[in-house]
């Protein structure tokens, strides 16, 4: 097998086992994206099927899809909430998800319905440990 790659896992983000990240913007809004590992596994991303603002998403349920040359991936909501903004630039330039998964390639912003759900997510250290177990 190929030696395990080093993936970027920024501090101060929350992570899921399905490789989404969440960054708290203030006490009730957050931005969601996919991790460096997720974009690398998908390989070249060609379509991002964005949800509409106002959509209510439920923790652990799929709410959008990302397609790469290799496969299609469902993106799961790290927490429950309502979508307040989507990254429309992904429609025309989906490749920024590969280039900048934590910054320019963010997916959606949501209004959290229950901030306590964050406690069930992993921090950077826990996610790194999880990645090394894969």
């Amino acid at each position: 097998m190929v030696a395990k790659k080093k993936y970027i896992v920024p501090e101060n983000l929350y992570y899921t086992k399905t490789h989404e990240w969440l960054k708290l913007l203030d006490e009730s809004t957050a931005v969601i994206g996919i991790t460096d590992y997720a974009q690398d596994m998908l390989h070249e991303i060609v379509y991002v099927d964005l949800p509409e603002t106002g959509t209510v998403i439920e923790k652990g349920s799929p709410f959008m899809e990302i397609e790469s040359v290799k496969s299609v991936a469902e993106i799961y909501a790290p927490v429950s909430g309502e979508i307040v903004e989507v990254n429309e630039s992904l429609e025309d330039t989906p490749e920024i998800l590969n280039e900048s998964p934590y910054e320019d390639g963010w997916l959606v912003k949501i209004k959290l319905s229950d901030i306590k759900e964050l406690e069930m997510l992993m921090d950077a250290d826990e996610y790194l440990e999880y990645l090394s177990s894969l």
Binding site: M1, V2, H43, E44, V69, K70
Partner: peptide, 19 residues
């Protein structure tokens, strides 16, 4: 290369980028 299993063989899926 990023390797894959195809038809029972351990083969390159891509070296740099499929596109």
């Amino acid at each position: 290369a990023q390797m894959t299993e195809f038809a029972g063989f351990y083969m390159p899926l891509f070296f740099s980028s499929i596109l």
